[in-house]
Design a protein around this nucleic acid. Structure first.
Lengths: 153, 153
DNA sequence: ATATGTGCAAATTCTTTGCATTAGA
DNA sequence: TCTAATGCAAAGAATTTGCACATAT
């Protein structure tokens, strides 16, 4: 489906990469080829991808799967990457543009992912903050059967 | 914190149990002591609990942990139990009263869970249905630092 | 030079499966 | 009776950890 579409021009991708590397460096992390390669994949294809999917998208022999896990750790820590949880036992990761919070509509049949650029939960976070909670965040994922899979049925 | 509070009188619990057993039976499942015991725990203490937490709450020697997993399967299938995913690698289960959709506020420090009886996502599901999706559902969990943990800090 | 990152292997954690045995309906 | 449920052991899947070696700064 409309998953993982490439959507920006090359110049923009380079910019995002440079700025992401700057963030990494600023947090005291080193710039290594696996990390750079991971960021390139994530910037170019958005995701979300599982650790394994990311690994398979890297240039052949780039690094071990373990390094993907560890690198993602650094990327998450610096907020360059957002972890998604589709409730199927595997975490997925996507590049965090930071621009606006978006959510996913996941097809239960074909697992296609569509982004939804509306966030209904701002009021909710506000409410929870009023209840006394600090550092409030939320996860929201939407599941359904996509149009194509309804036809296939 | 205010987690897992016992909140209904005994008669109501018995009623819920009977009705739950009826649902199970109706779906062609057999009523066994582990299932009855699981439902009792879930009705009395709400949850959400992990499989292991449920197992530890059962009368000593009631059944194997595997049976908890398998029983939960039957309970989920019949919608008596709802699976929650707090993104920490362990699923949790709670009794599904079916009355109204609620969400959880999970404290990142102490893991306490507070229920939030407001659902902001009805409009969202409607929107997604308008986009052509069928069988639309969603998961929404809220994370933060609770009042007590802010003080402890 | 030195702390950080990496590879490989092995451990962990949660959950599921196979199969012989037990027990609901 | 006869099929579904259970126990035990073992398999699976995703992720993490230990430790020696390699590499970015």
């Amino acid at each position: 489906m409309e998953t993982h579409a490439h959507s920006h021009c090359e110049g923009e991708e380079t910019l995002r990469l440079e700025s992401a590397l700057e963030v990494l460096r600023g947090a005291g992390h080193r710039i290594t080829s696996p990390r750079k390669a991971l960021l390139k994949v994530l910037i170019r294809e958005h995701g979300p991808f599982s650790a394994d999917e990311l690994h398979r998208r890297l240039p052949a022999g780039m690094c071990d799967l373990v390094t993907v896990y560890r690198s993602i750790g650094a990327l998450e820590e610096t907020n360059l990457v957002r972890r998604c949880d589709f409730g199927d036992g595997t975490y997925r990761y996507e590049f965090n543009t930071g621009e606006h919070h978006h959510h996913h509509i996941i097809c239960r049949q074909c697992s296609s992912v569509k982004n939804l650029d509306v966030c209904f939960a701002d009021g909710l976070e506000r409410l929870v903050r009023q209840m006394g909670y600090a550092n409030v965040t939320h996860t929201l994922e939407i599941f359904g059967t996509c149009v194509a899979c309804q036809k296939d049925k």
